[in-house]
Nucleic acid binder design. Structure first.
Lengths: 208, 208
DNA sequence: TTGGAATTCAAACAAGAGTTTGAAAAAGTT
DNA sequence: AACTTTTTCAAACTCTTGTTTGAATTCCAA
């Protein structure tokens, strides 16, 4: 296969992922990408058929990575008690608070998408959101074994959203007047707090 | 005072608010705004000293409106039992799901800001977030009267974020494979479900 | 090593962005 | 009514955007 071209392709993808995560699609210029990736201006059109194509590729890669991550996590969780499992689920969601790794970049890209979803993202969601929803749904089912379908769905979405305020507003929350700190012990404390509330919430009788 | 110029100012503000809410700052062009507002191209620079200034004004107006809204709501809630109050709080948060009014537009603008906050927004948050946080904190305090400061802060933020998944992903949630509906009875059902979980969560002993 | 395909490159292109300009029109003031 | 200020307008300007071009270079198999 064509080796050398792969490295510029990879360089572009890496630079683009970072910039798209930070500034969004509209806020990222092709020139900024090629500068960061240190490749020629025309490379993006040659390898990805334009900015759109590049973004689609980045989005797909991010989605694939998140899905695989989720699958691994699902296995780990299967062996725990439902309370331990839920805490582990929350802990994993909060993890990007402490380290700025690839996963937190992917989360940022998805955050941009939730404000104004692109067609690509929509189809990815509707076709491949099963692993995400599935994990949450399994978890919820262990607390609400007799719930109807709608309750199950809504509870799963609710569970998936438990951490989003903290993830999304990390920067502002660490400033005045909140002044939260997000080092490892604090995030562990936060994990326990949220887990406690969620477990208590789901444990009470679902009758209404 | 200068009357006639106020109407074009207002026209611009109105059009800009809608477009910024829908497409974000980068995605909205000055030409799109003046076309929607049916004013001359140069009007934005004349009245607001450029696109930046216009956006700052729109953001400030949105923030002011939300704050006043919140103040009114705070009084209503003061007279209820803590459970009723919390339900009312959730209900109000979910309200944009059913109607696309001014408030839901403001929410959208804020959503754009949470992905990549502008300096203006940052200062608005740090200086004028008191009404929002205050209302949530009062509510939380009625459930956790003995909690320490950190717990109180985190619980308030957690409470404020309870509905954001649904608000943010309304469009995707109403499509396959979730197929949620967001008419009035459904949203009322959702209000009760979330309220139930949150109340149960906060009601359990805060000891950990 | 050589020939043809794949890849890189600097430069230019057209379209769109936000802003500026200076004259025309309207409004307000005395 | 005359004069000044405020407001509108069409046009042009400058800068950035994404994309294209065609030659130069590199790669790789025969």
């Amino acid at each position: 296969m064509t080796r050398p071209s792969e490295v510029t392709r990879e360089r572009i993808m890496k630079a683009a992922e970072r910039l798209f995560a930070e500034r969004g699609y509209d806020g990222t210029s092709v020139r900024a990408i090629v500068a960061k990736a240190r490749v020629n201006q025309a490379a993006i059109n040659y390898h990805f058929e334009g900015k759109d194509g590049l973004y689609r590729e980045v989005l797909r890669a991010a989605f694939r990575a998140m899905t695989e991550n989720q699958m691994v996590h699902a296995r780990e969780i299967g062996t725990m008690s439902r309370e331990e499992a839920l805490s582990a689920f929350i802990r994993r969601q909060l993890h990007p608070l402490t380290s700025r790794d690839e996963t937190s970049r992917h989360m940022r890209i998805f955050n941009w998408e939730t404000v104004r979803p692109t067609p690509v993202f929509r189809s990815l969601i509707s076709e491949e959101s099963a692993p995400f929803m599935g994990l949450a749904a399994d978890l919820v089912r262990r607390f609400l074994p007799d719930a109807d379908q709608r309750t199950l769905t809504v509870a799963s979405i609710w569970l998936l959203g438990q951490c989003s305020v903290f993830l999304r507003n990390r920067e502002q929350l660490s400033e005045s007047p909140m002044n939260l700190v997000f080092d490892e012990p604090s995030v562990e404390w936060l994990t326990r707090a949220i887990s406690h509330w969620v477990i208590a919430g789901l444990s009470q009788s679902p009758a209404q």
